[in-house]
Simulated scan of single mutants.
Amino acid sequence: MKSFIDHLSTTDKDKRDFFLKWIELQLNAHLQTAIQLPLLRHKLAEQSNKEEKNMKEIAELDQALLDSSLVLEHYMREMGLIYEFSLQSRDTADEISRLPGLAAEMLLDGYPLELLDGDASNIPERWVTDVLMELHKKVGEKSRLLVLTVLGVQSSGKSTLLNTMFGVQFPVSSGRCTRGAYMLFLRVSEDIQRDLNCDFILLIDTEGLKSPHLEQLEDSYEHDNQLATFVIGLSDVTIINVSMENSTEMKDILQIATHAFLRMKEIGKKPVCHFVHQNVGGVSAHAKTKADRKHFLDQLNEMTQIAAEMEKQPAIKAFTDVLDYDMEKNNWNIPGLWHGTPPMAPVNTGYSVAVAGLKRQGKETNTMRCHKSQSF
């Protein structure tokens, strides 16, 4: 860690960028050539494809895969832990006090920063606060934000959706699914700052709901509810990624999201919400899916009533009582990313076209507008 911090501390930006890219390549090469990792992936794929899934074994393989991975985010997490622990001492060395500034520079360079430690369910509040304050200073205190987050089940393409929509590089093939929550900053060009009323777009990528490694726990639903409430509470725009065919699982995801929106209503916050239905065939036939959208709204209303009863808000009967929801404008059908089964399958260009349409429509209808008071 001392060597890692020393390389980040260099005043030569080109050297720092070279070092970060080099260590990423080295870690990825190590993961791809390790004997254990491909074997674990193969076993996990076999268990996931079985008709009668052994959820306990899937969870164990998922954890083993996690423990075998080492990526740049682990080094950044360790920096935050070193900083928070050092603050407990009265005498903080200059080397430690400059860590938030180094992390802020990495954020400006397009590297994601961990907002929620998914392994320990810990929010390094002081570390994140000080990093954002350093970032606030580095951008000349021009820090109006539009916060966008995406929620959905594990391995449903949430990171890929954000990568395609904004041209970023959330990890999607590092040998593990996203754990916790990560934030990434995008600077808004001057020509559209006035339209969006913000200087930065902050993207939050989250771990999947209904995760196999938590499914065996009795309070797994509570973890998912807390995660959804946490990220939706930070967000101006929320994308609910729906890609499963299992109606029971879809209802669970909708209920989790509805709980979070109900809690936001209690404090007077009403984020914009879009539902993205992935792997849908015949996307161009939008009119033909009107009955499906009506059925989806009925499911939303049903889940809203259940969530309202649990939250002791009997006056709320429909999803439109919670959010400004338009059945036509807030539902998006997106085809699958691949034509067939990877890795030999070609990429479906219709995926990018549909995602670009979602992004464009959100801008044109002024739904992606940040709050004037929202800043670092």
Rank of each mutant, 00 (worst) to 15 (best):
V150Y: 05
M165A: 04
L108D: 06
N333T: 06
R90F: 12
F230L: 10
G268T: 07
W332C: 03
H274G: 11
H259D: 15
R293W: 11
Q26D: 11
F376P: 06
I123N: 06
T289N: 09
S235E: 05
A104V: 00
K270H: 13
E215F: 01
A104N: 05
G268I: 02
K15A: 14
K359T: 15
G140I: 05
D195S: 15
L8D: 08
L40C: 05
Q374W: 00
L358A: 08
T149P: 01
R187E: 11
A307D: 08
M106H: 14
L70N: 03
A29M: 07
Y182M: 13
T367I: 11
Q88A: 10
D12G: 03
V172S: 09
M165K: 03
A354H: 02
D117G: 01
F170S: 08
N122G: 08
S69E: 05
P314H: 04
N197K: 09
S189V: 00
I239A: 06
V272T: 04
G110D: 02
I253T: 13
H286T: 00
L40R: 01
S375G: 12
H74Q: 12
V188I: 06
T11C: 07
A354M: 08
L37I: 07
P212C: 04
L20N: 08
S155P: 05
Y221Q: 12
E57N: 00
S48G: 01
L99H: 02
V150W: 04
F19I: 09
C370M: 07
Q361M: 00
D62V: 00
Y75K: 07
L297S: 03
K2L: 05
E266V: 03
K265M: 11
R360K: 15
S89W: 00
N348Q: 12
L66M: 07
N49E: 12
F230Y: 14
S352F: 00
A345C: 00
M250G: 10
C273R: 07
I201A: 01
E207V: 07
S189K: 05
H371T: 13
K317D: 10
R293D: 11
E84D: 15
L323P: 01
S243P: 08
